[in-house]
Computed example of a mutant assay.
Amino acid sequence: MGYIIWVNDVKAARNLEKYGCVHYISRRMHYVVMYLYTEKAEETLKNIRRLSYVRKVERSYRNEIKTEYTKAVPDQTQFYGI
């Protein structure tokens, strides 16, 4: 399960590695993308929210976005000679 954690201090955000798998840390926008085990997510998030450098925790909906596309419109490039 993916989560986006907004932080105040990026250096302190490296400590989040002990709670799960840190995928990305944005230094400019001050957020961390990390993955947690679904079974332990609630109790881990409770511990993460207690940290002084954490502003907000959001769940990532990336795995729910449709990634398989269908080609409903015919290819128009053959008419233009490409």
Rank of each mutant, 00 (worst) to 15 (best):
M1K: 11
M1T: 11
G2Q: 14
G2W: 05
Y3T: 08
Y3G: 04
I4S: 07
I4Q: 08
I4H: 12
I5V: 15
V7P: 03
V7Y: 04
V7L: 03
D9L: 02
D9F: 01
D9E: 08
V10T: 13
V10F: 05
V10D: 07
V10H: 03
K11S: 13
K11C: 07
K11W: 10
A12L: 13
A12R: 13
A13E: 01
R14H: 14
R14S: 14
N15I: 07
N15C: 09
L16N: 02
L16M: 07
E17R: 10
E17T: 13
E17L: 11
Y19W: 02
G20D: 06
C21L: 14
V22A: 02
H23E: 15
Y24E: 13
Y24L: 11
Y24S: 11
Y24G: 01
I25L: 11
I25C: 05
R27I: 14
R28L: 14
M29A: 15
M29D: 15
H30N: 15
H30C: 15
H30K: 15
H30T: 11
Y31H: 14
Y31K: 09
V33C: 09
V33L: 12
M34G: 02
M34A: 03
M34S: 02
M34Y: 04
Y35E: 14
L36H: 08
L36N: 05
L36Q: 07
L36W: 02
E39L: 13
K40Q: 13
K40W: 05
A41F: 06
E42P: 01
E42Y: 00
E42I: 08
E43Y: 08
N47A: 13
N47I: 05
R49H: 12
R50Y: 03
L51T: 04
L51C: 09
L51I: 04
S52N: 11
Y53H: 12
Y53V: 03
Y53M: 09
V54W: 03
V54P: 04
V54G: 03
V57G: 00
E58H: 08
E58F: 12
E58M: 04
R59A: 06
S60D: 15
S60P: 02
S60I: 03
Y61W: 08
R62W: 11
N63V: 14
N63E: 11
E64F: 09
E64C: 09
E64D: 10
I65N: 02
I65T: 05
K66H: 11
T67K: 06
T67R: 12
T67E: 12
T67N: 10
E68N: 09
E68Q: 06
Y69N: 07
V73H: 02
D75T: 03
D75L: 04
Q76K: 03
T77K: 09
F79Q: 03
F79G: 00
F79R: 04
Y80C: 05
Y80G: 07
G81N: 00
G81V: 00
G81H: 01
I82G: 07
